[in-house]
Design a protein around this nucleic acid. Structure first.
Lengths: 233, 233
DNA sequence: TCGGGCCAAGTGGCTCAGCCACTAGGCCAC
DNA sequence: GTGGCCTAGTGGCTGAGCCACTTGGCCCGA
């Protein structure tokens, strides 16, 4: 990863203004429809130029959190300035249980669609990913790359770019859970077996069976994770 | 709706700059890693102030499309400046079949979770939404508002903000399909019956049953839509 | 020849001062 | 009341300018 040694985070000024604004809204309890202080006042009280305040407001504007009316002030659209759109929410590690729920919902359907729609070429891609993972596992590797390829191939075979987009949204979190899951002793070979079952259902064109196999697989992953979190459960 | 007569769209200057920048990138075939012209040059060639150019660049920055290095220029992160994240992709009507697939995947899981996690208060909310729809249907209305409330209540009861976010992403498209589906003669009362089945499963705390009932319901909606599209199928 | 340090040009970050356009609310005339 | 006007307040945008940082080439010394 080129992310290895990420140096100092030089926050742009407008980002700091953004934070101060968010804080201000929550502190003063401003609600949707309320008016923000005037740009000049904000600049003065924050000790920055109006241009920087403006940049921050433009950001809030494109995020749909705020509405600036020429000559009429700037107004809150929601009760908060926090961007909760998927991407931001998804970054937090604590949401992993939710990610796994989402993964189950999405991948189950993807497996079903893949069984019904896959072309021969796509089936071959899935088969190769499976073979790759088998080789990894037999070499004592944990098979994380093969696992990734397998799920990617299934997603592609489903021919649903919307569902694929959703998967992309939680891709980073899935990678994390994948790695952790496959670290468990005995997990790689069991995962391989589950993949094989999914593959066979897809090859047979049996959507229901593929969905069921995928559901079983994802739930296994979820269980491992939860166990390593909440030992007493 | 207050959206009824939306007057002139007064585009902010930075939005126009944004458009020109996108156009420039596609026209000149700039790729990821390439450097954008200097802010001063852009300002001069577009005939606007540097501050306006700056605002546009800040927008691109927060969207992760561009990376500005202090003293080193501004660089493209992707091959395009078009935001293709889910929201934009989702706007296109042609994707409705995919939306319905996604809806099935998401709502099935939501119903299951709702059955397992709903509080008494949330169950009451669902019940009220159901009663509201029943009243609508009995008054000869198509029950679209009750339908919306029902699904919203189930989503809330599932306690998964990630899945709720995904639903929000396709909310507009779902509304569209909902309206069209409930316009079909006999559809409202049948939809009501399906809702009732879902409610009962959730009330009983039976996740599997709730999921199955929801799947049946969403598939009915999908079928209606597809039929009205492809009569020969 | 080659390596290292220096320097200047180029570029983004930010500020300041100011003008214009538009809005909102109060006041006045009717 | 009702409608129009007027003005203070506010966002939109500009231009000039300084500072901080990056980059690449040049020069000097080994």
């Amino acid at each position: 990863m080129s992310e290895a040694l990420r140096p100092v985070v030089k926050s742009r000024l407008y980002e700091q203004v953004l934070e101060r604004l968010r804080a201000h809204v929550t502190e003063t309890g401003l609600k949707a429809g309320d008016r923000l202080p005037a740009e000049r006042d904000l600049a003065a009280s924050l000790g920055v130029s109006r241009a920087s305040v403006k940049q921050a407001i433009v950001v809030l504007e494109v995020q749909g959190l705020v509405e600036a009316r020429h000559g009429g002030g700037t107004y809150l659209v929601r009760d908060t300035l926090d961007v909760e759109p998927v991407e931001r929410l998804v970054e937090r590690r604590e949401r992993l249980p939710e990610v796994l729920e989402a993964r189950e919902a999405l991948e189950t359907k993807l497996a079903e669609l893949a069984a019904e729609r896959r072309t021969e070429a796509e089936l071959e891609d899935i088969r190769q990913a499976l073979a790759f993972m088998r080789e990894e596992v037999e070499n004592g590797d944990n098979g994380v790359e093969g696992d990734r390829r397998f799920h990617a191939a299934v997603t592609a075979a489903a021919h649903s770019s919307l569902l694929a987009d959703f998967m992309k949204t939680i891709a980073a979190q899935i990678t994390e859970s994948r790695t952790e899951s496959l670290r468990q002793p005995g997990r790689p070979s069991r995962s391989l077996a589950q993949h094989t079952a999914i593959y066979e259902a897809i090859a047979a064109g049996d959507g229901k069976k593929a969905a069921a196999a995928m559901r079983r697989h994802v739930r296994t992953v979820a269980k491992v994770r939860l166990l390593s979190w909440v030992p007493e459960d």
